[in-house]
Structures are given as structure tokens and as C-alpha cells.
Design a protein around this nucleic acid. Structure first.
Lengths: 226, 226
DNA sequence: TAAGGCGTGATTGGATACATTCACAAGACC
DNA sequence: GGTCTTGTGAATGTATCCAATCACGCCTTA
């Protein structure tokens, strides 16, 4: 049987070829340089990255898998544009998976990471919205970096990526960023991690995400229906 | 701005082109015709489906996104082979997401679907392992077909697909298939759906999945470490 | 004899050129 | 005047060919 396994361990991918395009386009989408709903032309991308349309297609397929691009056969590619419902779903999933992920990751976080988390939590307070969102993302994803559950971590990362470009939600999130509850929860979370209490940390996180989800659900008007 | 949305609703994909390869290869992996860990040669696939290597590459990229294929740059493609840990993770995720998905789907299931579920639950009893696994999959995925949470449904479907090819777990699952508890839980689930009690159905389902997960965790030896 | 380097072959990655499909719009018919 | 039809154009899908890369086996050497 042709079961020759790759060299040693077939770790993720680490493609040295057209990954330049994947990374670049992902960055453009996450930073908002390409807004949700805008069309992506293969030829434009090819020119932009000095490549042919072939690696571009590979890149689009991969980003489709990540939920950042929507491909329609024989028609074209668009930057993924979540509906209100899909955004709600994302938060429902996060509410279930992230506490689990944190409880699995927590035992593997050393003191240096916890210190870094504490620092991030402090710097978030009083920051402007853009800074808050950047630090908040770094804070939570760092807390999941224990490496105990890579599959869950990947799903969670995709959910963060999917919802991040939706600047329309900023009108609501600015309230979340200013809320004392948000920063209190971050503090509680760090302290639970310092106490090596994964269950408590997970519980705080569940409340944290639920509160944000409910806040978003209260203002469905921030989403246009175009 | 070039924001021209696709025709009407950019529903999923419905690609009329090389999707033949995606469907065919997915089927081969799910049915076990291609075992986990075996290599996939682009040229072989191209010959098999009477196409060039180019649509084959697209297909592999897409199935990589579905978690059924592992691509290593400049090296090749393999049928995804889950580790013990990844399999455990999959069940942990299912334990959290499927009850949620069921509680959202349940209100949208009409009587005909519930009848079909009851029929499937009955036919599962005393069936051989292959039949049980097929009916069990159909049973659970049908119970999620309310269409209330397509994003969650897609994640769950991928998890089912990822774990399905792992015939090594069959030694354990045969015990699950024979267990009276399994069929009792299926019955309870159908009755909860008939009563229109999504919360109860979700609760039963959570116990159902947890029991299977624990059973698998008790026999880590069914997984080789090659 | 065992370990390291090198060459060969096979396989994947990419570029160009052509075929196919779809969207949009202008025109004809009712 | 509205609706259906049809034609044009642009963008995607595919095939073939060439280049780059990696795995495997052989040879050399300590």
C-alpha cells in the first residue's frame, strides 16, 4: 500500500510557495483594507502579488476554508459578509467553545504568559476602540495558547477572524470596551489563571462572552441589510 | 466601489465544474475506500476522474478545508489521519455544540421529520455495526436539519466527517451500538422532540455524546501510534 | 560497518493560452 | 411601456508545458 507517511511528522502545512498571497489577502481582510461584500478579482490579485492567477485561486480556496472568502462557481469571489444571524451564531459557538478551550489551555500557561495577560488587561482600560479590539484579541488568543487543544483553538481563531471585519458592530462594541464590567471580567480571568483555577476562569469567560453577545443582540440595527 | 453582489442570494456554492472530484473523493474517504494516512497522487486522481491535475488541486484544497485531506507543500497530499488527541477533541466539541444545535433546530422540525427519526431509532436496534453507524449518522444529522443555525451545522457535519473514517474506533463503537443505553437515549431524544421540548432534547443529547466520548477515552489502545 | 553527502527520478508548483460560463444590457416583440 | 430574448464582453474554469522542490537510493569516506 502506498502509505509512505511524509518525512517525519506531517505537521500543519508551512507552504513556502503562494502562501504569500494567503497571508497578504487575509491581512487585507482582517485590517479592513478589503471590506466585507466587496468583490475580489483574480486578475487584480495576481497583478498585485506579481503572480499568475493559479496561486491566486489556491489562496482563495484556502481562505474560503477559513471563512474569510466566499467563492461562487463561474462567477467570482467576494469578501465574506456575515448576516446578523451568522454573527449571532458565531457568538453562540464562542460561548460554548472558548470556556472549554481556556480550561484546557490554562494548566499549560506559565507565569510569564499570565504576566503578559495581566499587562494586556491593564493597557486595555481607557484605550480607544481600535486599540482595545487589537489588545482584546491578543489577550484572549494568548490565553488559549497552551497548545492543549489545537483543533478547538483553530475553530475559535476562525470565528474571531470571521467576526473581526464587521466594523458595523463597532457602534455596539464601543460600549463593551467602555464598560467597567468588561475590564472587571478580564481582571477576574487573569486572577483565576494565576490561582491555577481553570474552571473558575472558564466560568468567568462564559459570562464575559455571553454579556457581549446579548449586548450585540440588543442592537440588531447596527447591521445593514444591503 | 466594486461591490456588485452576486446575482440574488450568494447561497453556498453549487459549483458545476470540478465538484465532481470533490464529491467523489469525499465519498471515497468517508466510505473508507481511501484509508486515513494513505497518500493521494494528483495524477492518479486526474486519470480517475478524466480531468487534468488542475481541478484536482482545487478539490484537494477544498477537502483540506473540510479536514479530510492534509496537504504538505511541495510534498503531497494524504488522507487526514487523526491522532487520539484530535479524536478526543472532536468529541469534546461535539459535546458542546450538538446540544446547542439541536435546541435551535428542534422547533423547526415538523412531524414528518420526527416520524422519520423515530423510524431510524427503531431500525438501529439490533443492526450490524456498519448499518448502525450509517443510520446513527443519518439520525443525528437529520435532527439538526431545522436550518436554524447553518454555521453550527456545518462545523458539526465536518466533525462527523473527520471522525467517521477512523475504523480503528469500531472496536469500541460496537459496544456503543449494542448498548441498551444508546437506544434508550435515542428514544428519549425522539420523545423530547415530539413534546417540542428543545431543552430536554439537548440535555439527553449531551449525556449521549459524553457517554460515547468517555467510552472511547477508556480504550486509547484502539488507536495505533504508527 | 556506519554515517554523511550527492545525484537521479518522480511529484508538485507555476505560467501561458484557450474554452466555457455567466452577468449585463441593448433590442425586439407583445 | 413592460417583458422576454439574445448578443456581447468580461471573468472564471481547464488543459498543456515547463521549472522548482523533495524523497530515496547509491556512493564515498572515516
Amino acid at each position: 500500500m502506498t502509505t509512505t507517511q511524509p518525512a517525519d511528522a506531517p505537521t500543519t502545512d508551512t507552504g513556502p510557495a503562494s502562501d504569500r498571497i494567503v497571508d497578504g489577502l487575509r491581512r487585507q481582510i482582517l485590517t479592513g483594507a478589503r471590506a466585507p461584500g466587496t468583490r475580489i478579482l483574480q486578475e487584480d490579485l495576481a497583478r498585485e502579488f506579481n503572480a499568475s492567477r493559479l496561486p491566486v485561486r489556491d489562496a482563495l480556496r484556502r481562505l474560503e476554508g477559513e471563512g474569510l472568502v466566499r467563492l461562487v462557481a463561474n462567477t467570482g469571489a467576494w469578501v465574506e459578509s456575515l448576516s446578523v444571524h451568522e454573527c449571532t451564531e458565531a457568538y453562540l459557538i464562542r460561548e460554548r467553545l472558548e470556556p472549554l478551550l481556556l480550561s484546557l489551555s490554562a494548566p499549560h500557561l506559565d507565569d510569564a504568559v499570565v504576566d503578559r495577560l495581566a499587562d494586556l488587561a491593564t493597557r486595555m482600560q481607557g484605550a480607544d476602540l481600535e486599540t482595545f479590539l487589537r489588545l482584546d484579541r491578543e489577550f484572549h488568543l494568548l490565553s488559549y495558547s497552551g497548545g492543549a487543544a489545537p483543533s478547538i483553538e483553530e475553530i475559535v481563531r476562525r470565528l474571531w477572524n470571521s467576526t473581526q471585519p464587521y466594523r458595523r458592530a463597532y457602534a455596539v462594541l464601543v460600549g463593551v470596551a467602555d464598560s467597567p464590567a468588561t475590564h472587571a471580567e478580564h481582571t477576574l480571568l487573569v486572577e483565576a489563571l494565576r490561582r491555577r483555577d481553570p474552571q473558575d476562569a472558564a466560568h468567568v469567560l462564559e459570562l464575559h462572552i455571553r454579556r457581549t453577545r446579548v449586548e450585540l443582540a440588543r442592537h440588531p440595527d447596527v447591521f445593514d441589510t444591503d
